[in-house]
């Protein structure tokens, strides 16, 4: 049974557009240099890809980042995580590890408490066979 309050519709959506629509109510968000998404260019382990999101934005009682959504474009369910902050976090930052079955784009969308949306530059994470070396 789902945990109370867990947004099933957004997490069960099977395409990026639907997952975005169900989580942030739009499919197009302007890229902002304030939303920093850090992920490796090549995954060391596709089952645990470290992703860090950090937003340059005040975190005061009347102006703060309320949520950050993390998507992997072609995962079976593209919405991976929805982080909800308060001003007391001091910084809209988190680090988590995600699963990626194949080379794909990762993107984050931040939402302020006033409802303004800002996207990170999408970052490609390559899931590849290795085996070469200098």
């Amino acid at each position: 049974a789902n945990v109370a309050g867990w947004p099933a519709a957004a997490f069960d959506a099977k395409a990026l557009d639907a997952a975005m629509k169900d989580s942030i109510d739009t499919t197009s968000v302007k890229v902002s240099p304030k939303v920093h998404l850090t992920a490796p260019t090549i995954a060391e382990n596709g089952a645990a890809v470290p992703v860090t999101v950090d937003v340059d934005h005040p975190m005061t009682a009347d102006d703060y980042i309320e949520s950050v959504y993390l998507y992997v474009d072609h995962n079976p369910t593209p919405l991976a995580s929805a982080f909800h902050f308060s001003a007391n976090n001091g910084q809209a930052y988190f680090q988590a590890r995600i699963k990626m079955a194949k080379t794909d784009m990762v993107r984050a969308v931040a939402k302020t408490n006033k409802g303004v949306l800002m996207a990170s530059k999408p970052q490609e994470v390559k899931v590849t066979i290795g085996g070469c070396g200098g």
Binding site: A82, A96, I98
Partner: peptide, 15 residues
């Protein structure tokens, strides 16, 4: 935070 199954086994989280 709300998570999907795309979060890795034995989840690590920093904030």
């Amino acid at each position: 935070v709300d998570w999907s199954t795309a979060i890795s086994a034995n989840p690590y989280l920093a904030f």
